[in-house]
Write a protein that binds this DNA or RNA. Sequence first.
RNA 1: GCCCCCGUGGCCCAAUUGGCAGAGGCGGUCGACUUAAAAUCGAUUCAGUGCCGGUUCGAGUCCGGUCGGGGGCACCA
Length: 960
Amino acid sequence: MNESTEGAPPHRYTAAVAGDVERRWQQYWDEHGTFHAPNPTGPLAEDAGVPEDKLFVQDMFPYPSGQGLHVGHPLGFIGTDVFARYSRMTGRNVLHTMGFDAFGLPAEQYAVQTGQHPRTTTENNIERYLAQLRQLGFGHDTRRRISTIDPEYYRWTQWIFLQIYNSWYDAEQGKARPIAELEEQYERGERATPDGRDWSELTRIERSAILDTHRLAYVDESPVNWCPGLGTVLSNEEVTSEGRSERGNFPVFQRNLKQWMMRITAYADRLIDDLDRLDWPEKVKAMQRNWIGRSRGATVHFPVHAAATEAGDEAAASSIEVFTTRPDTLFGATYMVLAPEHPMVDELTPEQWPEGVDERWTGGASSPAEAVAAYRHAASLKTEMDRQENRDKTGVFTGCYAVNPVNGARIPVFVADYVLMGYGTGAIMAVPGQDQRDWDFAEAYGLEIIRTVQPDDDFDGEAYLGDGVVVNSANDEGFSLNGLDITEAKDAVVTWLSEHGYGGADVQYKLRDWLFSRQRYWGEPFPIVYDVEGIAHALPEHMLPVELPEVEEYSPATYDPEAAETKPVPPLEKATDWVEVELDLGDGKRPYRRETNTMPNWAGSCWYQLRYIDPTNSERMCDPENERYWMGPRPEEHGPDDPGGVDLYVGGVEHAVLHLLYSRFWHKVLYDLGYVSSEEPYRKLFNQGYIQAYAYTDSRGVYVPAEEVVEENGRFFYNGEEVTQEYGKMGKSLKNVVTPDQMAEEYGVDTFRFYEMSMGPLEDSRPWATKDVVGAHRFLQRLWRLIVDENTGRLRVADVETSTEDRKQLHRAIAGVREDFAGLRFNTAGAKLIELNNYVTKTYSAAEATPRELAEALVLMIAPMCPHVAEELWHRLGHEGSLAHGPFPEADERYLVDETVEYPIQVNGKVRSRVTVPADADQDAVQAAALAEEKVAAALDGGEPRKVIVVPGRLVNVVV
RNA sequence: GCCCCCGUGGCCCAAUUGGCAGAGGCGGUCGACUUAAAAUCGAUUCAGUGCCGGUUCGAGUCCGGUCGGGGGCACCA
């Protein structure tokens, strides 16, 4: 027992009493299924049907780590719970639950160390986690809990993969369609095969290869991020800007490997455009726009004087294709650059340097081939880090010239590593006059600089990026851009290019296709097998789920982090009995090999909201009727553009790109294929802040226990020794962890919940302060004391009359609290409740009894934040059952308006006096009353005011 | 380098969106209860909103600049 409860009155609301109350009500909720939300149809439907007014609230589900929770973890969970509880009390059908994102590296790594199966570790952690969630009193519908590692869940993850695999993107219709419909187009000859042969003439392998190039999930041999230290490949999103793995910080290398990809780029436009239809933080939208990186511009083909590679060879007419966002500057293109990896480099490089070549261009080599080879070799050795640290422009002349199509100018072609193979076409037209990178290169290599946009008069920079009039842009055939503005010039050039066959308008994206396979054990197996010819086959639905086999070794082969030339070996490769199977896929039993990669960790989280809706459905991923009810668009409620989706999705901003982009992509595919009615998974997104903490280091830089540090005059001491304060994360190694368990022990969960919500706005990050928690505790003690006699435990509430003032206080609080709850402003809702409680305490704590009208309203209004103590008091007030479904107090307009209003009177903006007038006084009456006021009259000194501003209900300002 | 967000009493935070800077909590001080302390209760204290300038009858709120803190992107043609 805590010493603070010793000697306290026997019926005071202490941590011990709170703990008892909390456990009892948690059990009650469990036994009564209080938070079960009915579905329109299926096993979770009820005879009574469902109300039209519903709310689907979702938290970003947690990874069940073995570390346990600290006080920062549940912040968002409490926020959604308060909102869900408030909404439920006002009569809405509320779906709120929580599952687990349970595949992932930590369990696998633990398995590697200890030999314990990742499933065992993970399931134990989930048990621990569930106990903690229960302790915090969340109103989850526990029937809807899912876990991504549950075969009945990942069966549907595999099923969705198959839908994606069996689809192609029809660019004309702007949507995904079944691959069978594409095959029909080929069969009927409506679509030409790549080499023009008839579909019927193609072999099975050839047909399958053609279809594979259209599938939304496909195998590709292309450059991928290979991370030898982890023994796996990674998606672009999982690689940091330093070119290292986000997890583990190992070096990542570009290697050509055969891997599964998802054609997310097909959805680039919709993923960008539909952001406008979402109620999301602008910051997150900006990050997604940035990641997708759409730029509009033009493709331009530059003919090359194809340098003969062999003596006497008349070079074939060839051209270099570039992408530019500034086609208007085409007349200023004075040279070109290819990325070192560009496939055309070899064919363009002639035997010998042209006559009189600039020495700076040759790199001192005796032939172009030698110079280019040396440069490419040097570039290949550079890591991302090197490239970033050193931005000096380097490059080498290929010996080849291209022709600027617009004016016939002969311009040199360089190889330089400031052009990246991964963006656009891997080649650029260089316009030093309007691009700083090109300017830098041109300066270093003595290349011509032509301005095609007239800078402002006072411009003294180098490359000019601003607006202006186009100059120096005309050819001999009468085509001229001179005098146009940039936008007009772009249009004119694009038109000219298409008319003359040199290119046309084009759009490029930074977004790449999503690398979807990982060489790990602890992930979803692919529902794919390969036949003896190596052709991939999707497994039929009835063979799902494909379950993970038992293996000896859980880890892939890992290597020296720097060993770039190594190859991935997935752990499933060794499960021979599982890999080699005989199956009947429709043409008799045949031998197949299973795909041995597994899906990335993001797969399971791409669609879990759909499974929450229909967690027990064994026929379908989710019944369409249930999906339509919980997630379907509601234009009458959210406007004509409403894409539908979860009503409120709360989580950290760290998932701004990865999870949220992948999830949107999957959802759109499912929408296109007709499985869901919503076009987006999450209609409204909210990023909660982080709870941070102070940490302290001693003179050696070693962390000391934060809770034992004392402050004195702004300096900090531990055991009498001065220590240094740091601010940041909460973590074991920082010795500053505070757990919800500690808080529950010391104050009870309701106090903890109330404190977390009242610390500040949910979206803000703020420091944890254990010493402040007592304020929330005192508040609940005062509330309890108003209702329960601390000495006898008897109810001290009676049906006594309340005063008009009481009602004004009460109804003002009700109106404010309702607004605050609805707007997720729990901190101010809490403050208003404390204020009302303080008023009632002041008015009735010394009286015989507290009026029931006030007591009940307080109890109901505190319930979303402090549900256990509210249930207990509601019960003691004589009510049967739970208050979880309301009622919630309603404000009576009559008490929100005063009969009189006190106006502050400003003279020249400074408050000088006050005057009280009837609330219905019109502006003239208020003005008259103000001017008649003694001090104001004195300030006017008999003169006329220059101006009088009356703000109805606010104030009067007299200007003299 | 580019883009975004935030600076209000000693601390965490409010302020009806341009209208009296203070709702709430912590802390401090004083008092009650107690043999005493803790806990609890009551009372009370404290800033002119990072800084400079502008718009306005009126600016924490809008605009420009500047300093400080946090975040995102980064040779993307």
